[in-house]
Amino acid sequence: MKLFRAAAIAFLLVVCLAGLLANVVAPASCARQFREQPDAPPSHAHWLGTDDLGRDRFSRLLYGTRVSLFLAPAAAALAGVLAALIGGVAGLAGGWIESCLMAATDLFLSMPWLFLLVTVRALLPLDVSPWASVTITFALLGCLGWAAAARVVCADVRTLWSSDALLLGHASGSSGLHLLRWHIVPRLKPVLWAQFWISIPVFILSEANLSILGLGVAEPLPSWGSLLSELESFPVFTTQPWQLAPLFLLVATVSCFHLALQNQESWA
């Protein structure tokens, strides 16, 4: 198991470094179009071939890693923090505060966010840079993606609060803060980690879908989401399997994160 964990950490390090140093490692700029070679298969010059416009797929994957690997977890963390705060307060306070917060959560879950996102895009100025656009997109995803997790956290906190261990703590004179710090938060960690890992691939794919509304990563900047969206319209599984590289990288990265942090979760 230790060997697997070490391998996962090594893989993640390589992926993170490759993303960070994309402008050094990538054989070409992510925007450069080799117009004489659109849709080219893998070759010595283009390891993963080229896309519809002749851009080097390997370079775009590296630059896309930089965008997605840092912004999707950031959005997932933002959603996790909001879920922990809102769900935690609701579970701890109980009564009318819980009712109000959970009603707000339910309202949040049932709102047609598509229209809000369309409005946001309409309100944004047109001269937003591609990096600002992608940051806004992931921030929005983080702000909108907390509600389901908040319900889970609230239910867990409520159960913990009425558990025998916490009753004993109360009886032995421990303060509320002490119980929160040493008994509730550590027990909530696995739940929050699970929500965090579930959110990352969801946010990456949501970002790809948001491009339909004109939100998301603007050209020529790539992201895993925009690279994955290229798989929609073509039977790549049989004819151009190298186009599946972003999918494999996403699955491998999320799996390695799970492996690398498994011990931490057990500890938590």
Binding site: A31, Q33, V118, L126, S129, G214, A218
Partner: peptide, 21 residues
């Protein structure tokens, strides 16, 4: 639009592409 973006970069013009519903 992406190809025009590269063409205009060749004469020093920066083009931003905005897709809207």
């Amino acid at each position: 639009a992406t190809m025009i973006q590269q063409d205009l970069a060749g004469i020093g013009i920066r083009l931003r592409i905005v897709t809207l519903d």
